[in-house]
Design a protein around this nucleic acid. Structure first.
Length: 271
DNA sequence: ATGGTGGTTAGACCA
């Protein structure tokens, strides 16, 4: 067993359309675990063989036709944990596995938080209400996990940029869904409840700007650089002193037919 | 100032 554990989170926006990009990334970065969101693929169409061929023969996935969907693929075996049905909806926004054995086992949870639509008003916009309910459920889940399994990693597209320097303009985005106070306060409550450590902000403290997403709607995304940090890797309290390194593969945003999110990878010591 | 682009899938719906 290697001495470190590396985990990537990547919203791939259709794993079938971008399977060649995913395989390229795996060859270049070789993380131990890859957590995907927005696979947009029913389970019977998940490209398992391509992952096996790329050296990742262990898979856990839950998907649906056209929307949502999450997956975890790995080079090493794992135990599948229960996929949670969040907000009472069977919409495939969580999957989890357990890595290793006994007291050293680590739980890895992969979440895809609802984007929340355009209007930041839960009374007028049911998608925003769903997002806030999801975040509240994440808070309750974090409380339970903190007590039962502090050796946990939570990753995913959380669709919230919680800090001032997680967006290109704090002031201009205060009423834009993903950075409104009700969302950023909600996510901070989740972090507090779970005693989660925001690993990339340990490695890159504010006021450094850190982004993982650049909109498709920007004609020149790289020059404009109007990004947001929507993707996160959090460590439970028993793992927070084991950070080794982190990497954000911004260059993948410039690949042909890119996802609007880029892969973020965290490496920690196994024990 | 309220569109801009992209994926899924066949007219909207979602991001």
């Amino acid at each position: 067993m290697p001495k470190t554990l590396s985990v990537t989170s990547w919203n791939i926006n259709s794993v079938r359309l971008r399977i060649e990009s995913v395989v390229r990334f795996l060859h270049e970065a070789q993380p131990d675990f890859l957590c995907l969101q927005e696979t947009k693929t029913p389970d019977d169409a998940f490209p398992a063989h391509a992952f096996t061929k790329a050296g990742y023969p262990h898979h856990a996935f839950i998907g649906m036709k056209g929307y949502n969907g999450v997956a975890i693929v790995a080079r090493e075996p794992f135990r599948k944990l229960e996929a949670r049905e969040m907000c009472g909806k069977p919409d495939a926004r969580h999957i989890a596995v357990e890595i290793g054995e006994g007291a050293g086992a680590i739980q890895l949870h992969n979440f895809y938080v609802p984007a929340g639509g355009d209007l930041a008003d839960p009374d007028e916009n049911p998608k925003f209400a769903h997002k806030l309910s999801f975040v509240e459920e994440l808070r309750q889940f974090s409380e339970k996990l903190r007590g039962s399994q502090p050796r946990a990693v939570l990753v995913g597209d959380l669709n919230i940029a919680p800090l001032e320097h997680d967006v290109w303009s704090h002031k201009q985005l205060l009423d834009v869904v993903s950075h409104t106070p009700v969302e950023t306060d909600g996510l901070k409550a989740v972090m507090q409840e779970g005693e989660w450590c925001d690993a990339f902000r340990v490695l890159k403290p504010e006021p450094e700007k850190v982004y993982s997403w650049w909109s498709y709607r920007s004609p020149d995304w790289a020059a404009a650089d109007k990004g947001r940090r929507l993707d996160h890797i959090w460590l439970g309290r028993s793992l927070k002193d084991q950070i080794v390194s982190g990497e954000i593969r911004k260059e993948t945003r410039g690949w042909e037919r890119p996802s609007d999110h880029v892969p973020i990878t965290l490496t920690i010591a196994r024990d």
